[in-house]
Amino acid sequence: MTRYRKQDPEITRRRFINAAMGTTATVGIVSLVGVLGTANPVFRLTRDKMPPVEGDILVHASASKEGEPIKISELSEQLVRAWPMGKDKEGNKLIRKGDPNNVLAIYRFPKGQIVAPTHLDATIDGEIVAYSDICTHAGCSVSDDDQQEGQMKCPCHSGQYDPKRGCIVVGGPPPRALAQLPIKQDGEGLVVGGFFLENPYPFTESEWEARKEAVKAQLA
């Protein structure tokens, strides 16, 4: 009878199985992440999703008057919500409500009440001022404060803003002020003078810079 001397295999059975399982798991996880990637659709910056740009007309956002240009005579210390209205490629009117974060809050206060840190040169005669209406905390639409005239309160977690002082946070959880939008008078109506002066919700500063560049490139 021949006696075989068993050679030590290069790797043990256990190590082989472990390595095989490890490889399978890695491949599996990588492909799973690939699948998850498909869950995230590509974002296309269409004109109805652009933030307010220079020359946009401000129109009413409330359901009953949606799309009607806002007149200066309609403004007061009560908040008026507005959409920016621009033009599509063919030059037709287009309300930019593809992104619901484009809602704006417009106020008119007696002269002298609006003070720094509001950018006064971005208001109309220091009387009419426009902000993003989207709370910087979790993105709710901010309303008038039901207890203090001329103040704003978020219905979600009662964040409070002061629209006479650049919409700085005066209470509650929001991390920063509402972004101010430069506006200009055009006859009876209001037009946008340029991009938001700070990053509006939900953009970080760098994302906002990138978005502005993308909009400029597309409209050029």
């Binding site: 956002a61 409330s62 359901a63 219905p155 977690h157």
Partner: peptide, 24 residues
Amino acid sequence: PSTTPINNIKPDWYLLWVFGALAI
């Protein structure tokens, strides 16, 4: 859905504690 927020919106009761923590 509209741009008018709902006053004093609340989540369902079993998530209210998270909501409360967010508020304070």
